[in-house]
């Protein structure tokens, strides 16, 4: 049986599951607040690749990321988790490139390394590179299967996957390899229980980085100069004023207004509740009463 080469696309994202407070001018998020992590869906895809490799013994995994130093760290964690090789693509002209340019760069890597199966997460936590896999697949002329719940089997140059459709429907798809499969995150905490020797090896080995010229691309084709979509400005989202904390009514109107504008509103978010089982149950019932989720 031929060796199966699996490539996993890894994107570094800003952890946007926590509040990202804006700077004093309210223009952009505070840089200290933005923590770069591996896109959870991509990490899940890597775990799927590792499982797949465990099932079929003759296969190897290469992790591919596009980005600067934060991408390098993400890739090192992928190596620690068990990927055989890592490849970083970065070029100064990619900083301002659009999704088409970045997709072409990834496509160039994929056409050169000719993996049989390419995995990535479906969706991207911070939405910045969410189109990347699709664009890369089309630029490389690969089939693209998004919204995959699980991979059933990979054999004889075919992959059988289960796709999620609307209203809980599922479809089983057979796709001819090479193909790019975007896997939906199943939830749960991403584990990073890499063993220590693997971790040390991952953080001591040199990490190759390919620029556009190594990939036979030019800044005009893939970089910022070729970008058809340009970012003019990024602004933080306005907080969802779900539960405004009412300021003290005894304050003068001007101060009340300043309180509201400055932080009197709490952004809507998940809540970790603690307490005795009775208190927890009460809080959950209260939550369902106040939120229009189910009728109680």
């Amino acid at each position: 049986m031929r060796k199966l080469n699996i490539a996993v696309l890894i994107r570094s994202v800003v952890d946007s599951r926590v509040p990202l407070p804006p700077d004093v001018y309210g223009e952009k998020p505070l840089p200290e607040g933005m923590i770069s992590i591996v896109n959870p869906a991509d990490w899940f895809a890597l775990e799927c690749a590792l499982n797949l490799r465990n099932q079929m013994n003759r296969s190897q995994i290469v992790a591919i990321a596009l980005g600067g130093e934060e991408a390098e760290e993400s890739l090192r964690w992928c190596l620690a988790a068990g990927a055989e090789r890592a490849l970083r693509i970065w070029d100064r002209s990619l900083v301002e490139a659009d999704q088409l340019g970045r997709g072409k760069a990834v496509a160039a890597v994929l056409t050169r390394s000719k993996p049989d199966l390419i995995l990535c997460g479906d969706g991207c936590l911070d939405q910045i590179n969410s189109l990347l896999p699709g664009v890369a697949a089309s630029a490389a002329g690969l089939s693209y299967v998004p919204g995959v719940a699980r991979i059933e089997k990979v054999e004889h140059g075919m992959a059988v996957v289960v796709r999620k459709l609307e209203k809980g429907k599922r479809e089983r798809v057979m796709v001819k390899l090479p193909a790019l499969i975007a896997i939906e995150e199943a939830g749960g905490v991403p584990s990073c229980d890499a063993d220590l020797p693997g971790l040390i090896a991952a953080f001591t080995q040199p990490m190759p980085c390919k620029g556009l010229s190594c990939l036979g691309l030019s800044p005009e084709r893939a970089g910022s100069r070729g970008a058809k979509v340009n970012n003019v400005m990024t602004r933080v989202s306005r907080p969802i004023t779900a539960r405004p904390v009412t300021p003290d009514h005894r304050l003068p109107a001007e101060q009340r207004l300043r309180k509201i504008l400055a932080g009197g509103v709490v952004r809507k978010q998940g809540e970790v509740i603690t307490g005795t089982p009775e208190q927890l149950a009460d809080r959950i019932i209260e939550f369902f009463r106040s939120e229009p989720v189910v009728m109680l």
Binding site: D193, A194, D195, L196, L199
Partner: peptide, 9 residues
């Protein structure tokens, strides 16, 4: 001993 598999350092 690091809290990882084969964590002897």
């Amino acid at each position: 001993m690091a809290r990882r598999p084969q964590g002897e350092l």
